[in-house]
Design a protein around this nucleic acid. Structure first.
Lengths: 218, 218, 218, 218
DNA sequence: AATGAATGAGTCTTCATTCAT
DNA sequence: CATGAATGAAGACTCATTCAT
């Protein structure tokens, strides 16, 4: 849960073979895909704003879709990476005394990650519904790996008596909704507002844990 | 909060002037837009699956975008209608003894509405990011009217001591996230699962109100 | 073995549904394909010389290859039609006293046909080696139907003692070579020479029958 | 009428300056041109199947067409070489007692040559109609030199009373048709059949000389 | 109102060719 | 000599839109 969180830079560093032009293409593609959507972005437009010839794009990516995937796949994989750590369970016991600690760590980590890669995140959620291959990839990774792992965590804290006895999937859903809801509102719907991120995260964790109702006095 | 919840039918009934062909066009467009996205759907495809000539579409809608808007605008307006009732406040006092009652009523009503109009909902959330006019419409209606109204409601129950003292917008965000999160997971991400809707809604309301943590013993 | 020998006209008459533009497209395509070859002819070029928009071509023919086939298939079918007459054998007995009569009739008929459709014939023989579907069509029609029928004819005259006792396929090959050789030299290789067609055909028949050697004196 | 009949090898031996890569390029080009046609073969494809970089092709051949010509020209020249021997006439007198002897020698020699260079032959006959320069080259060599020479030969044997009194060009046409017809049927149209080449050649010579009709009894 | 042929700008992609390394 | 990234013109094909019928 560390390292250079900025995915684009990371992709660039990882692949040393990337031409300067290739980097420009990727940057331009990310910008345009996020702004107007994959289908409404033309390759000629990408080429122009990347400052390369249109043919250059197709030298590096066989098809326009290949270009999209080369952008989204690392995003997807990197996003779920932390959840796939083999011994997540143990890590939990040692590191996080309570579910709340775990939740807070998780949220801060993933929110930081997504905030730094908002354009990629936007492309990802916009295109998943329309790209069967992406959908499959998403389902496989999120559906099997992440949810399985998370279910274990939830059950672990349920056994410890910290969490209510609701179906884990429902708990996960609410938690995830709160997180993604925050990200989407904060970055995509109302980015122009002044946000006190730390306060919002605190509030969000607080509400996930204890709801919005004033607790009944004993 | 009543009437024929199915928007498409309603649109058809409302506008008596709609030709039989026009209805077919709308149905075909909704189907295709939801399935492949607005940008990836061609008018010729819509015409074919509607069983009309290409020209017929443009007789009724000046442009392809007009067709999209003619579908989405009623959706958007209908969705927010309940929130804009002038005397919502009074209605509240009389009808809903507690915020939880209000919340449950609201959720059931809107979930029922969206579930019955899932295709339209999907088109709406997919296209809003890319259609500036839609975005403006959305911000104006949701941003000003709905949030304003909802803020009043939240403040009302905060004054009654039922809700915690967090910023209303944050409370609204969490509540909305939980609802939309449920809808999206249930209808778009994992529609193939067996869902006990009533149980899920109960759980969701319960968690919004009291969180997922086991309450501390007094 | 009669009727309007000009295939293009016939195609036009047969298909009453052909638009005026569609006819222009076909004529332009034939011209260009024959002149520069299928692969070296661009659709934009066809469009231009047909005086239509490029899109118009694709309204009528899904692909460029479809356009090619729509031109070549009738040609191929029409060319072999006379050989597939069911009762060719009977026809022979009645009409043609000798193989030489038959041969002369056949040659004059087919040479007349091909001469009138030289462009189509040129396209046909140029494209067959490169279009697997055409090759298959050709092999099926020529290979099975025409050769089978012709073999019967040859054997018939061999039994009558008119033809030498060589393998029918070899006899057919020499005969066909002489005919196509004449056509190709006369129309494609040396069209600028002055040709006395009737004399050439007479000579050709004469040589097919008796060779080029001076017969040995008895 | 001697030497290593395989043209490709000969080209390689003759030009000692040919790089190993260059040889691979030529071989790959021949293969692809014969298979899919010149216009439908891309230089990148040739480069790939030759195992060289695209640039390498253009280091040796200024243009794609240059590559084609570098392949076809030797073919054309080599093919007609035997006919251009200055004192062909004398050679004839001495070597060939009869036209039939001459014909048989000629056929066996040229058939052997073309069979060994079938791919080149195929490229030659496919491209001649579309490459004006080739066409000119062909006409000049075949049209003037070969036909002129051959006409002399035919007239020589006509004077000796061995050949009928038809126009030499017609006799040449029939003879050439029979030869090329055999080559095309045997190698390009029906290569999958079992061919007894010697028998076929014998038959062909026989038919050229005496036709297919049973000679009338004296 | 409905049609569908026609359009031509625009799409993704391929290609022959160049040139710095 | 050889490479392969880069080019941009051209290719086949699609599309939203128009208009005469």
């Amino acid at each position: 849960m560390n390292g250079p969180d900025n995915l684009i830079e990371e992709i660039f560093e990882q692949s040393d073979e990337l031409t300067e032009k290739q980097k420009k293409i990727i940057l331009a593609a990310i910008q345009s895909f996020a702004e107007k959507g994959y289908a409404s972005t033309s390759t000629s437009e990408i080429a122009k704003s990347a400052g390369v010839a249109e043919g250059t794009i197709f030298r590096h990516y066989k098809t326009k879709k290949d270009l999209l995937y080369s952008i989204i796949e690392p995003m997807l994989k990197k996003f779920i990476a932390p959840f796939v750590i083999k011994d997540m369970e143990k890590v939990l016991n040692e590191k996080h005394a309570s579910f709340e600690d775990f939740l807070r760590a998780m949220i801060e980590n993933r929110i930081s990650f997504l905030s730094k890669n908002m354009l990629l995140f936007k492309i990802l959620i916009q295109e998943i519904p329309f790209q069967p291959e992406l959908k499959a990839l998403f389902k496989e990774h999120i559906g099997t790996k992440v949810i399985t792992r998370f279910t274990q965590v939830v059950e672990h804290y349920q056994e410890k008596g910290e969490l209510i006895d609701a179906p884990p999937l429902t708990i996960i859903r609410l938690t995830a909704s709160a997180i993604f809801g925050y990200l989407i509102v904060r970055n995509l719907l109302l980015p122009e507002l002044d946000w006190d991120d730390q306060a919002e995260i605190d509030q969000t964790v607080q509400m996930i844990m204890h709801g919005i109702a004033v607790p009944k006095q004993a």
